[in-house]
């Protein structure tokens, strides 16, 4: 394990009855690295996320977050983890601030400190003036921003994002993608980002391709392209997953 690997996954397998959802998957995400987890639907992305977040327990293999084994030291591991789930998990009847305060409380952040951090994060996301609006009144893109701000409130080392741009229009998507890349650079945050949208990948990203529960590639975008001998990620992805890429 590299000393600055924030997320290390080694030999993880998981089955639902006879179906193998993950088959001996291993990879790591380093500090300041934006790792894109690419895979068609049913590739095992959601299962992998449930294992990393300890919603499920992996029967074999190990997952370490910031050096803490998720199964043996779940609390320490979860402390270093921020998550944005695919479905919005905001309480729509509560205001932005109330939602964030709830999260801060769950992480044991003092009230005053929490208020300060909320202000800081919302300012960064350009959402401060909407802090006292109910989240129901926000559009999809803004809700996503609040969720990412929330996931960063306890200053995690690893940020997990499960298809965060689903349901967003093109400008909101672009803004979010740019923002996340900036976060990675500026805060040295390790990001693991599941998506099936290839245009969200930047050339400096780390690419992880998952297909039918198996790891098909893991490396810098340029390395993956070299290995597969293709010029575009689309073509490389189509080859790795053994199918024609949809347009």
């Amino acid at each position: 394990m590299s000393h600055n690997a924030i997320l290390s996954i080694a030999n993880i397998s998981y089955t639902y009855g006879p179906k193998k959802a993950l088959d001996r998957v291993s990879f790591s995400v380093k500090e300041g690295q934006c790792a894109i987890l690419l895979g068609p639907n049913g590739a095992g992305k959601s299962t992998l996320f449930s294992l990393i977040t300890h919603l499920y327990d992996a029967p074999s293999g190990t997952i370490c977050i910031d050096g803490h084994d998720v199964r043996l030291k779940p609390l320490k591991a979860l402390k270093a983890l921020g998550v944005v789930f695919q479905q919005s998990t905001l309480d729509l009847d509560l205001t932005v601030r109330q939602n964030l305060l709830y999260h801060a409380a769950l992480h044991g952040i003092k009230r005053r400190e929490a208020e300060h951090r909320i202000e800081e994060e919302l300012t960064r996301f350009g959402m401060l003036e909407r802090a006292d609006e109910k989240t129901r009144q926000l559009n999809g893109g803004h809700r996503r921003r609040v969720e990412i701000a929330r996931a960063l409130l306890h200053r995690p080392r690893l940020l997990l994002l499960d298809e965060p741009t689903v349901g967003l229009d093109v400008p909101s998507r672009k803004a979010l993608v740019d923002h996340l890349h900036a976060l990675c650079r500026d805060r040295q945050l390790a990001v693991l980002w599941a998506t099936h949208l290839i245009d969200e990948i930047a050339s400096e990203d780390h690419l992880i391709v998952l297909h039918q529960g198996q790891l098909k590639a893991s490396g810098a975008v340029s390395d993956v392209l070299d290995e597969t001998g293709h010029e575009t990620i689309e073509a490389a992805f189509a080859q790795l997953t053994g199918r024609q890429e949809r347009t």
Binding site: T53, P74, L75, K79, F85, T89, H103, L106, H107
Partner: peptide, 9 residues
């Protein structure tokens, strides 16, 4: 899920 991924038992 938000509740269950909090770092508490």
């Amino acid at each position: 899920k938000t509740l269950l991924v909090s770092p508490l038992p």
